[in-house]
Amino acid sequence: MRIGVVTFPGSLDDGDAARAARIAGAEVVRLWHGDADLHGVDAVVLPGGFSYGDALRCGAIARFAPVMESLADAARGGLPVLGICNGFQILCEAHLLPGALTRNQHLHFRNRDQFLRVESTSTAWTNAFTAGQEILIPVKNGEGCFVADERTLDELEGEGRVVARYTHGNPNGSQRDIAAITNEAGNVVGIMPHPEHAVEALTGPSLDGLGFFTSVLRALAGAPAGGQLAGGQSR
């Protein structure tokens, strides 16, 4: 399975995302923001960082990169996409996910090891977890406070599209403790904390992050060849 990792100017965790995918057993393909070609990858990770220096708004400019046009089409066609931190922000700006990430309520950049509760295991990126499972992965952001209007929030809840919630403390003030959400089809997931930093005992607080990357490999293995990945099929 080939997982693409996109590098924008200002991407910072791209190497970490690539390492995590590799540890999970994927072949990694590095994608360049200026190249619209997805090089036939089976899934894509939009990594963390400060694309374009967060100019204007986090993710606002990255959304217009050539690679994003192809990616948006492919995502609507079912390609599994995981946006981590800045990647989540880009997915929101690209309207592949609803809502927005705003400045942390306490106004500080915050880096800590954070517990999450996995709420949905029916996405392409979380099928390796069990529902309700608590996992520990690092969070590190300045603008990670998820907001959306009440109707959107209710919709996300009602459709089981809240993928993970903060537990034992909300690090940024996100509405309804939301840490990760998915699109209707379950192939596009945005997550604020950093699973790619919890894949090795030596450097991470746990190995819990690995599950996101093994999930997509499982989903891809189980998906019909060339077919679309529908939400809920993998578990």
Partner: peptide
Amino acid sequence: TEQYDRYVLG
């Protein structure tokens, strides 16, 4: 120290 990223680069 939690205002600093200590994880990036892995």
